[in-house]
Nucleic acid binder design. Structure first.
Length: 424
DNA sequence: TCAAACCTTGTCGTTCTTCA
DNA sequence: TGAAGAACGACAAGGTTTGA
């Protein structure tokens, strides 16, 4: 594949929001009102109704919260971002303080209301034709780790994960010790998962001097540090290594915050996957579930964009009938694999999903629909395996471990754990 | 035993810095 | 000097520990 870019990708032109539904709620508001204040009010109500932009940990749908000045400012911030990006794609037009929907914007509303997938791909088309960000992202992933099909790992180890308790961290030297242990662990991960012998010492020194110049830690090892800064220090250390991986290890030239936005939008479109489970590793992994190629005849790959250089972006979106044997085998093998690690009959379904999606390079949506199909075949006794699904959680796991991850619906109910047997 | 205090984690913007 | 881009942190919420 020729990865010389025909145009410079504009990865920083996307605005700071993740969910594609934001376009819909803005367009819907602009269709109803033209006065900016009225549009904003409508947008705010829709944002609450669609539960958009809330922290994963935050209880969704909490009502009755007082609308403080600070909260209003947050809404205004997002509103401004969605307005600007919608103007960029020509979905709305501005005349002084009034906004009007364009034909393209109106079409999008209709698409959302009839077929969300159609809506998503139309948005994708607007984004890609202006910015070429997905081209850059997908080609960069493959370039960064060819031997593992574009897999990017982002290790995250908090002190407790490395057996260092908060109360043990009281002096500068304790922070440095955490950084040393962490750096060693990260170097091991790079070696194991990326097959690179990395010397992280200069990066580590750079991190320490950054913390010192920000006066978060002292230059004297014996000096104590203000425990109020504990969270800030941890966050700085985490972000430092995330950026290091992105820019230095993978040579992807964008900030981690834009990278997150592109990946999250890519995930909604079935172009990328971003998951948490990977063998012997703590952190995030990201990999493409699409390819850039001049031509693919395999019907499991869907062509969603043609670039001026002749390459096309194909997403891997197989039909269930074409993948049934492979999917069944992968579900069973992944189950056996996870079962041997946890030593329990039932295992975490989200872990199984992450593993199967990684092995087969399919999206979460595909996994859910394939599992539903397989489950129905299993009920009709038409497959060789027996699947049991439950909504319970594993005794060793906490509620947050499930809250954090996207739920999986099968047979009309949320399922958290799974067991698989071979039929006799 | 149980409520309060503290710990951990990561999102969603917000603010600071750089650049044209 | 304003826009674009990168760095940064407030905050929320579930988990865990503490101690009355």
């Amino acid at each position: 594949m020729n990865t010389t870019l025909f145009v410079e990708p504009k990865v920083t032109s996307v605005k700071k929001f993740y969910f594609l539904e934001y376009f819909y709620i803005l367009l819907k508001s602009v269709k109803q009102f033209s006065n900016k204040d009225e549009i904003f009010e409508s947008f705010r109500v829709y944002k609450d109704g669609f539960q958009l932009g809330e922290s994963k940990y935050k209880k969704l749908g909490s009502t009755g919260e007082e609308l403080t000045r600070e909260r209003l400012l947050r809404y205004e911030y997002t509103f401004k971002e969605v307005i600007e990006e919608s103007e960029l794609y020509g979905l709305i037009k501005r005349k002084q303080d009034e906004y009007f929907i364009t034909k393209e914007g109106d079409d999008l509303i209709r698409k959302y209301e009839t077929n969300v997938e159609d809506f998503n791909f139309s948005i994708f088309n607007f984004i890609e034709s202006k910015l070429f960000g997905f081209y850059y992202l997908v080609s960069s992933c493959y370039k960064a780790n060819r031997s593992k099909q574009g897999l990017l790992i982002f290790p995250i180890y908090s002190p407790p994960k490395l057996d260092i308790q908060k109360k043990q961290i009281t002096k500068t030297k304790d922070v440095i010790n955490y950084i040393n242990v962490l750096t060693k662990k990260i170097a091991q991960d790079i070696n194991e998962h990326l097959d690179i012998q990395a010397d992280l010492n200069s990066a580590k020194d750079n991190l320490i001097s950054k913390l010192q110049s920000a006066e978060l830690i002292s230059e004297s090892l014996e000096a104590g540090f203000n425990t109020e800064n504990y969270n800030v220090i941890l966050k700085r250390i985490r972000d430092f290594w995330l950026s290091y991986f992105l820019n230095e290890v993978y040579k992807i030239q964008m900030s981690i915050s834009y990278f997150d936005i592109w990946c999250y939008r890519g995930r909604q479109l079935g172009i990328m996957n971003a998951t948490e489970f990977y063998y012997n590793f703590d952190g995030k992994i990201i990999y493409p579930i699409s390819i850039l190629s001049q031509g693919v005849s395999n019907p499991d790959f869907k062509n969603i964009y043609q670039y001026p250089d002749g390459n096309c972006l194909y997403i891997h979106s197989p039909k269930f009938d074409n993948i049934i044997e492979q999917f069944t085998k992968s579900v069973y093998e992944s189950y056996i694999d996870l079962k041997s690690r946890y030593k329990t009959y039932f295992i975490n379904l989200a872990d199984l999903r992450d593993l199967v999606c990684f092995k087969l390079k399919i999206s979460y949506e595909n996994f859910a629909s394939f599992l539903e199909n397989l489950y129905q075949l299993n009920l009709r006794n038409e497959v060789k395996i027996k699947i049991s699904l439950e909504g319970d959680k594993l005794p060793s796991e906490t509620k947050a471990m499930y809250l954090k991850r996207e739920p999986i619906m099968v047979d009309g109910r949320i399922c958290n754990i799974i067991a698989v047997d071979i039929k006799k």
